[in-house]
């Protein structure tokens, strides 16, 4: 009896935890995990006539991924995602360093808020702003024409360049914030110690600062790479029909071509990559938050 009482008590805590997380668990199970499971199943099915699937098992959809037409889009998406990550890192690192080394806390917080604001604000509207600037009758062309530098409007919109600009613009804050967090944690006395031991500026950066801030670099890179790989809005708005990334291909397969199984297999490939990166992030990104 005593034993039972004690055991019941120890269930108590787990019971309470279970009670508190059960709504989230059920919601995520029903409306996140099971849907992902469905597209996993769909990706091995034959396409239905008007969308939907026929329940016949096939590897065809994954074979189709290797079709040069689609492979080109996939490789292009990877290339763009890597390029965007590198550009954001090169722009973001010095900036995060600058913010975290400000002496005045008020000033530092203002600089930080200025990065946080675009981080959370409407992605769509921020992308649209570049439409205003880059289009044929847009700001850049108007200025250049009026100054007489060009005679014909430049084709800026619906190009790779426009997409890259839009993506850097969209995801730069995702790089800066984790970088800032890890640079901020850096103990300045370590840098002083390195200088004291005779290291020059280059060595201090490569051998001390960079290794110590690598969790931020990993976190920031994943936070930029993943959404870029699955980008839809930016290539659609700024790349038009010219530029296609995996996101646009998936959308096209689902809503226009109505080939759900193929769209599902593409989604699942993206999902696998994301999960792999998530595991890397958990392992090497941020140190365990909880005690």
């Amino acid at each position: 009896m005593k034993d039972f009482l004690l055991r019941y008590k120890s269930w108590g805590k787990e019971g309470k935890a279970g009670f508190l997380i059960s709504p989230a668990f059920l919601w995520l199970l029903l409306f996140f995990l099971i849907p992902l499971g469905i597209i996993f199943v769909y990706s091995f099915c034959e396409r239905g006539n008007y969308g939907g699937v026929n329940w016949n098992f096939t590897f065809e959809n994954y074979k189709q991924v290797l079709n040069p037409v689609y492979l080109k889009t996939i490789l292009y998406s990877f290339w763009i995602a890597i390029l965007n990550t590198v550009i954001c890192l090169l722009i973001g690192y010095p900036m995060a360093y600058y913010i975290s080394t400000r002496k005045s806390t008020v000033f530092k917080n203002i600089l930080l808020i200025l990065v946080i604001l675009p981080f959370w604000t409407d992605f769509l509207v921020r992308t649209y702003a570049w439409l205003v600037i880059l289009r044929e009758g847009g700001l850049i062309n108007t200025i250049l024409l009026q100054m007489g530098i060009i005679q014909e409007p430049l084709k800026l919109l619906f190009t790779d360049l426009a997409v890259i600009i839009g993506l850097v613009y969209g995801y730069l804050p995702f790089m800066i914030l984790p970088l800032y967090a890890s640079i901020e944690k850096l103990d300045p006395s370590l840098i002083e110690a390195a200088y004291d031991l005779g290291a020059n500026g280059f060595n201090v950066f490569w051998k001390v600062i960079l290794p110590l801030t690598s969790p931020g670099i990993i976190a920031g890179s994943i936070l930029v790479f993943v959404p870029t790989l699955g980008a839809y809005i930016t290539p659609d708005l700024l790349g038009g029909a010219k530029v296609m990334m995996i996101g646009n291909l998936i959308q096209q397969q689902f809503l226009k071509v109505k080939n759900w199984p193929f769209g599902s297999s593409l989604s699942f490939i993206v999902l696998i990559i994301v999960l792999a990166l998530l595991i890397i992030y958990i392992k090497f990104g941020e140190p365990e938050v909880e005690k």
């Binding site: 989230a24 995520l28 409306f31 996140f32 995990l33 099971i34 849907p35 992902l36 469905i38 597209i39 769909y42 994943i222 936070l223 993943v226 959404p227 790989l229 699955g230 980008a231 839809y232 996101g247 998936i250 959308q251 689902f254 759900w260 769209g263 599902s264 989604s267 993206v270 999902l271 994301v274 999960l275 990166l277 998530l278 992030y281 958990i282």
Partner: peptide
């Protein structure tokens, strides 16, 4: 914990089509 943070990192397009399929 991992499942809890997945919706943040899984691209919207994947979440969108999987919910539609569901």
């Amino acid at each position: 914990d991992s499942v809890l943070y997945m919706p943040i990192i899984v691209p919207d397009i994947v979440m969108g089509i999987s919910l539609l399929s569901f």
